[in-house]
Design a binder for these strands. Sequence first.
DNA 1: CGTCGTCTTGAACTTGCTCAACAACCGTGG
DNA 2: CCACGGTTGTTGAGCAAGTTCAAGACGACG
Lengths: 244, 244
Amino acid sequence: MMNRLTRKLEAFGPLPDADKRLLDEIIRDARSVKPRTDLIREGETPNDVNLILEGFACRYKMTPNGTRQIVAYLVPGDFCDLHVFILKAMDHTIATLSQCQVVKIPRPRILALMERPAIARAFWWAALVDEATLREWLINVGVRTAEQRVAHLLCELLLRLETVGLTNGDTYELPITQAELADTVGLTAVHVNRVLQRLRGDGLITLKGKNLVILDVARLKALSGFNPNYLHLSDQNGLPEQSV
Amino acid sequence: MMNRLTRKLEAFGPLPDADKRLLDEIIRDARSVKPRTDLIREGETPNDVNLILEGFACRYKMTPNGTRQIVAYLVPGDFCDLHVFILKAMDHTIATLSQCQVVKIPRPRILALMERPAIARAFWWAALVDEATLREWLINVGVRTAEQRVAHLLCELLLRLETVGLTNGDTYELPITQAELADTVGLTAVHVNRVLQRLRGDGLITLKGKNLVILDVARLKALSGFNPNYLHLSDQNGLPEQSV
DNA sequence: CGTCGTCTTGAACTTGCTCAACAACCGTGG
DNA sequence: CCACGGTTGTTGAGCAAGTTCAAGACGACG
């Protein structure tokens, strides 16, 4: 089974075997990180890049009034910040949400990888997709209703987790509390709770503990106006699932 | 007087004179574009990069229900898309808001510029600031009140326009309708109107036609919780204004 | 001088929030 | 194995921010 990073990058295009071997080396000595642990804080200047191998992490920012906005989810195969090197200081914080496996990749190793044309292109692709996702999230909180926001997020995660082999049909593990979901889609935890119940009531999903089942993907996509183009997958319909 | 692009890039760090001359050459033969004109549409694959020299443009996306969300403003000195080359298709549309002066820079010229280390670094810096701005906008619509959203946007534009020499003290030209402002901050035009009146009533701004005067920058920043760190300017307080 | 877009105002309405209480769940230690 | 405490999820009722619809005023420009 391919490692998550390679799987993700190959969603853009195939990589030479030599490159894949390099990527395999990188993900040695991962460390385990507890849930709700800051990996890099706003204001810091990290000298290495974190790569998530297991679990969910996020980028977030606090506002003066004490509210939190999560601005990105980081799932297995995602880099925390590929090009922090250029900027003096982080303008946001990165933290784990669930229990995670994380690798710290030192700057020189990243630069070495960037020498490989196929890898360099794949890295840029990943960075551009991150930005496109940010735009889509802005649209989510900007114009969509509460139901649509949650539904859209669930659709996005289905595709993203699919590309790294973490789905089983239309089922995946969502190790996120409703409060965290709320901080993501710009709603309160109470309201997210009611939204989830309506989605359940409409026969769109089941969500028990961390186990999410999307019962009717087509309807969930239609409801949220989901269009996967912003993820820039070569196969726009998502990869055919090779089950576990 | 330096050209807008050079001014912007030097907000990151000084450029060699030879590089500046190259940047001057690029901005020849600009063309004039009417307001509300699409420059690149969702789905297209452009072969050149647009650079805004005068006026305001934006990135936006439509949702199935016919609402529009503006996800970025492009002001003089801003590139429309520096690295579209990697992706197959645009996932959003770019359009002018006001009358604009725009240059089309063909792909090979961009690649030639990227050979210059100082320019390459400055380009990446600009791209990263774009992404950071997107995060801040997500926070804007995610957690801030209507007043704060508008106030924050006005503070951001003050700094951005200051770095390209388009402010006069705390005054600048804002060639944007209230409806467009609404599509930017995730409110209705009616409500934006009421918010602006409250900001006027509180002695924070005047806005007559396209002429914006910020009467009390400190209070406007405090109100919106504005922190300029995400713009990653070398001088975090904004450049000292060298008036026109 | 009329027309079209933009701005302004009012009043009813709706979505999502706040506050508060309670239930279900999970890991820990006795 | 059960009791306990803390976190997460659920429910209700009142409230507030922002929306919707509709009409009128202003202003720029032919």
